[in-house]
Nucleic acid binder design. Structure first.
Lengths: 328, 328
DNA sequence: AAATGTTGCGGAACCGGTTCCGCAACACAA
DNA sequence: TTGTGTTGCGGAACCGGTTCCGCAACATTT
């Protein structure tokens, strides 16, 4: 099981190794030489050593993917999509996890550069000056998913429009006393843009909005749900993510309230469990997986020098289900 | 931003590059030389080129992780655990996805070998002769998670014992008419061992058991739940995974049945949503994340030549919650 | 003082590819 | 026939490390 090298091939075929290399990389090689080399390669199952190649070329066929966590629904789905498409295109995905530490995002940008990945897909939360500096330093195409910044190619969810559309819908149904449960602002897209979309819709209708802030964790939303249940001062609770909605639902159940009988609840994201719960949860479906595929396409385009728009929006789809009541 | 090489360091420090290499790898180097080299390295931010190192050493600091899918709860959590620990130990995780195709598992074993990963952690479903052959061929330590085989180091969940314990509990609560919703046998641990653990407990108590088989997908379990709801010929539905339980619950709800009022339902795995649903779901918690960490430890031990047992069991914990009624 | 052992270091080869350069062989036009 | 252009191929250098070998300087033993 010894590694077969290009030298072996050259020797067996009776040619110089430079000729073999030329054969492999599409240089000019005569037909008879071509045949000899081809046969030997077949027989030996020769495969070029990737390290030797990368050492010379200072490049790999890897695309680094920076994710804030490995166990989030959005990240998992997106990775699926990225991996599928990248594999088709002859690239490999190299996932690195930052455990939600901004510092590690920057670290990993440099780290991936050291490993000579061909490109980087970055599922970000915030874009700081230091991120931009890193991206400039490493001289590698970077595609940002889920957040936007004018200086970075980005593929973003239409958080504002989706939130606005959903909020508008709720207004149309007669809800006027709203509670919004959001996340902290350090995640621009989710913490700010998404919230602003909702608030715009609510404000336009002159609704009364009360805001809570929590984390992305299910558990942290439970006490909020309980409190809401006890006060019961609104007709609708709008949550920034489906996981938060799940926590709020639990809290409401703990407080003995039923949904949508006593109060309505909506989520955001379109995680698969939302459809299957009872009651099914009204939410916005974001195409995580397809976004991953598109990101893979786009990073490959960047690698091949094609120009792509700095900012691309994905689609969204309202999922109007049982958890939100129609009042009028 | 040019790459600094060992040659540059040697030149700047006025020594031979072999000396620099020795310095870096802990060879014998005099104190004054040592100081000079150290200073130059500091100033230049020198970092060795990994390709050159790997080319020579035929090794990397990567551990390949073969997963059947990227978006399953179990896989995600396990990867979290693996990644955390591996990072601490100075290794990097390289995840490859097989999209649930056995053929690709074998492919990826060879593929990872080609990439000279130091070790492989394999979240498997079935172990075939061809897998064993591949493992033998590649000459790289492999650690199997979730399945067992006498010829492969494995870290396995106590599927049988956990299922038996949970089944026993249900028997103690007076359930005698049972429906078991399992998965196909190609996944040995889940499709066979887990089922057998339950059946043992049920049979010992002389219960009447009816069996359904479905996939791992939530959606496929919904019609089964509906059918069960309409027939209502049992007091308890035991599901092979929490996702299946989720589907069954949906089906039951569609059929207008309440849980646990009309019928009880249990899951398996301990996914986080089980606790937070209403009713909360009785299940078995498997320590996916910690298992990932342990796997990382174990593969590193294998790399350093330590001997570890061929088979290691993880723990489990019964989560007895609202979805299963106590009949007596 | 000679023989022996240690330590520090430089030179060169090597890992397995890619690429530049130049030469030989051949075809074709002048 | 000579000159010019094209094509195919080999040799050598190079990518950036590691490691083997041998020599010189110094310390230690007899």
């Amino acid at each position: 099981m010894k590694q077969v090298t290009i030298n072996d091939i050259a020797k067996l075929a009776g040619v110089a190794k430079s000729t073999v290399s030329r054969y492999l990389n599409g240089g000019s090689v005569g037909q008879s030489t071509r045949d000899k080399i081809e046969r030997v390669i077949q027989e030996t199952n020769y495969e070029p050593n990737q390290f030797a190649q990368s050492l010379k070329s200072k490049q790999t066929k890897m695309i680094g993917v920076i994710v804030p966590r490995l166990d989030s629904y959005a990240a998992s789905r997106t990775m699926m999509g990225i991996d599928e498409r990248l594999t088709e295109r002859g690239y490999q995905m190299l996932v690195v996890n930052t455990a939600q530490q901004t510092e590690r995002e920057i670290e990993q940008l440099y780290n991936l550069a050291k490993q000579k990945v061909a490109g980087i897909i970055w599922l970000g939360t915030t874009v700081t000056e230091r991120h931009l500096q890193a991206i400039k330093d490493i001289q590698i195409p970077v595609l940002l998913i889920g957040q936007e910044h004018e200086q970075v190619h980005s593929l973003v969810y239409p958080d504002f429009d989706a939130a606005y559309a959903l909020g508008k819908q709720f207004m149309g149904w007669g809800h006027r006393d709203i509670i919004y449960v959001g996340v902290e602002e350090y995640d621009i897209a989710v913490g700010q843009t998404r919230r602003d979309g909702f608030l715009r819709a609510f404000n336009e209708a002159g609704a009364d909005v009360k805001t809570y802030t929590t984390s992305f964790k299910i558990d942290d939303a439970i006490p909020i749900g309980m409190q809401i249940g006890h006060e019961l001062s609104a007709s609708l609770v709008v949550c920034a993510t489906d996981n938060i909605a799940l926590g709020v639902l639990k809290g409401l159940a703990n407080a003995g309230k039923t949904v949508p009988g006593d109060i309505s609840v909506s989520g955001f994201g379109g995680y698969d469990f939302t459809e299957v719960l009872h009651p099914s949860i009204t939410t916005v479906h974001l195409p995580y997986r397809r976004t991953g595929s598109r990101a893979a396409d786009m990073i490959v385009q960047l690698l091949t020098g094609e120009t792509i728009p700095m900012k691309t929006f994905t689609t969204f789809e309202l999922k109007l289900r049982e958890s939100v009541d129609i009042l009028n």
